[in-house]
Every structure is written in C-alpha cells, then in structure tokens.
Simulated assay, not measured.
Amino acid sequence: MPDTSPTDPTSGSPDLIEAPRRRRWPLVLGGLVALAVVAGVLVATTGGDDDTTAAGGETVRIGVVGASDPYWATYQEAAADEGIDVEIVDFADYNQPNPAVAEGELDLNQFQHIVFLADYNVATGEDLQPIGATAIYPLGLHSKQYDAVEDIPDGATVAVPDDASNQARALVLLQSAGLIELKSGGTIFSDLADVDTDASRVQVEALAAALTATSLDDLAGAVVNNDFVERAGLDFDDALAQDDPSDSAALPYANVFAARADDLDDPTYQRLVEIYQETQAVQDGVVEVSGGTAVMLDTPVEQLQASLAEVEADTRDQG
C-alpha cells in the first residue's frame, strides 16, 4: 500500500491496502481507494428507476469512498436489471461509512479491508461483518539488478517501508517469496524485530516509503508502495513478487462489503455481492481504475468472517 498521506480519490491512482497503525481510532486508511482530502459526506449518487426496487420496495443504500469511479454506475445498472434499486452514498472520510452502517443510516458499505474493519469493531464494540469479497491490491517487490527472486544473492539487502502500516505487509510478502523467515509466522503486526536473521536469505532495511524505489540503485530489491511505482519509472508488471491473494497471510487485506451482523443472511444483500462479483463490466472497471493492479476476489464468506475474528483477537492482544 502507498504512503499514508491523503490523496484525491478522483485521481485514478488507487492505493494498495495497508494494515492500520497500532490500535488507534480514528484511522487514516491508505489502499482500498485513495483517501479524499475534503471531510464530510458528499452528495449521494443514485441509480435505477423508481420501479426498480429491492425486495419489499426499499432502496439498498451502500456507502463508498470514490463513487465517481465509473464502475459504480455500471454496478447500479446491473442491480436495476434484477429489480434492485441501489443508492451509492459517497463519503469523503474513511471514518464515516462504518458508523453509518452500525447506526442504520446505510445498509452496506464497500470501502475497506478486513484489518480496517477489525480495528473499528475492536475500538467501538460494534459487530460489523464481511458479507463478500471484492478485490485485493498487491504490494510488489521490485529490483533494478535482478530479474527473478531466485537471482537475489544470499546476504543482499532488500528494503521495506519504515511505517508500521506498510512494513508488516511487506515483510509477509518477503517471507512468501522465500527471502526471509518471520518468527511469528507473519502477522499484521510484524516488524523488523520479527525477522529471523539466521534463517533468512537477505538482510532487511527499513526506509521511508517514498525512498524505497529511489534507492533501488543501491539495493538488491525493495518493496515499493503502489503510489511510487510509476513515479520511479518502474512498471507494475516487472515486480519480482507480489501478494498472493490465495495466501492466507494476504486474506486480511481483502476488500469487502460489510453489513450489520443481523443482516448477514439477507438475500438481497447477498445477491448484490454476487452481482459485483459476476458482472464482467464491473470487474473490468475496478481493474481499470486500479491501473491494472487489482486482483478480483470471490473468497467464501466463511473465510472472510474467520479472518476478521482472528484479526480482531490479534488486535485485542496488541492492546
């Protein structure tokens, strides 16, 4: 995920997903989508005709950040084709959509990954739950000297971002690539102290996220946040390794639709998740807006909920 500084959600340069900093609320999230710079709720965007309503004649209100992304209009049209009226409510602040769902002002939201949701639940005592996966935005390992992970020599130095929100994910990526071993096995709280240096192939150095890419001339490799890949003249496709969405360690970074726990079995909500996952134009639109980095997911709900429970437990332990 990119740096944690705010970016304009209309810029078309999405961030990668990142774990939140240690136990704090409110959070500033980078990654699912770019963070808006203007606080407050924007004007809601509505779709569908008056006669295209959900079961019971009610409109389903979904909170998002970045409703101007074209795929949301496509999604509304696909839902309307099945008789479901969807109202997309656009927020400019990541701290608002979860309380809005909890208080019943929204039916669903789709803007966050599991780690963010877990931190919110633990901090507030709420019980919002994922009802479906959307996408994960891979974090990549880049190199100017080597063309493959196996070419990186033992003892070489690889850089990771120095902020806690990105460092844990970068270390898990290096472990998945076979370059290091983490004493904990890899968690959302891993840091340099978690690296088993005797069992690792490379040395790990922490640099400011903005410097990992620009320091590649002096490094064997670096985990580069999404925001800095193209700025540094790198290509997303040239990454030697990236998060594997099928890896259980990457699951907490999956973006999800979230609902109140009492609404998990609502058939209309479940169908709306399926429409998002099954409508090719929606899927293509998400990938396009992400600059081709998004990996679309249809992870079973049971796995998402189990991951949330695990991250919540870990977050409480850290407190």
Rank of each mutant, 00 (worst) to 15 (best):
residue 1 M to Y: 03
residue 4 T to G: 08
residue 14 P to M: 08
residue 14 P to H: 07
residue 16 L to Q: 11
residue 17 I to W: 14
residue 22 R to H: 15
residue 25 W to Y: 04
residue 26 P to Q: 05
residue 28 V to L: 15
residue 28 V to R: 15
residue 33 V to R: 13
residue 36 A to V: 05
residue 43 V to N: 09
residue 45 T to L: 06
residue 47 G to C: 09
residue 53 T to A: 07
residue 62 I to M: 00
residue 68 S to Q: 13
residue 69 D to C: 04
residue 74 T to M: 08
residue 76 Q to W: 03
residue 77 E to S: 09
residue 80 A to E: 09
residue 81 D to G: 08
residue 82 E to G: 06
residue 83 G to N: 12
residue 83 G to F: 12
residue 84 I to M: 13
residue 85 D to H: 14
residue 85 D to G: 15
residue 90 D to R: 00
residue 94 Y to D: 05
residue 95 N to V: 09
residue 98 N to Q: 06
residue 99 P to V: 04
residue 105 E to N: 06
residue 107 D to F: 01
residue 113 H to R: 02
residue 117 L to P: 01
residue 118 A to P: 01
residue 120 Y to H: 00
residue 122 V to H: 02
residue 127 D to V: 10
residue 144 K to A: 14
residue 148 A to Y: 13
residue 153 P to T: 14
residue 154 D to V: 12
residue 158 V to R: 06
residue 166 N to W: 08
residue 167 Q to Y: 08
residue 169 R to N: 13
residue 169 R to M: 13
residue 184 S to H: 04
residue 184 S to Q: 06
residue 186 G to W: 02
residue 186 G to F: 05
residue 189 F to K: 07
residue 190 S to D: 12
residue 193 A to F: 08
residue 197 T to M: 12
residue 198 D to F: 05
residue 198 D to A: 15
residue 200 S to P: 12
residue 206 A to C: 08
residue 207 L to S: 03
residue 212 T to M: 07
residue 213 A to K: 07
residue 214 T to M: 14
residue 215 S to D: 13
residue 216 L to S: 14
residue 224 V to T: 04
residue 229 V to F: 04
residue 229 V to A: 04
residue 232 A to G: 02
residue 235 D to I: 05
residue 237 D to T: 06
residue 241 A to T: 00
residue 246 S to G: 03
residue 247 D to G: 00
residue 249 A to H: 02
residue 249 A to T: 04
residue 258 A to C: 05
residue 261 A to K: 04
residue 262 D to C: 02
residue 264 L to S: 03
residue 264 L to Q: 11
residue 265 D to E: 15
residue 267 P to W: 01
residue 268 T to M: 13
residue 270 Q to S: 12
residue 276 Y to F: 15
residue 283 Q to L: 14
residue 287 V to A: 11
residue 302 E to P: 00
residue 303 Q to P: 00
residue 304 L to H: 02
residue 309 A to R: 07
residue 315 T to F: 05
residue 319 G to I: 12
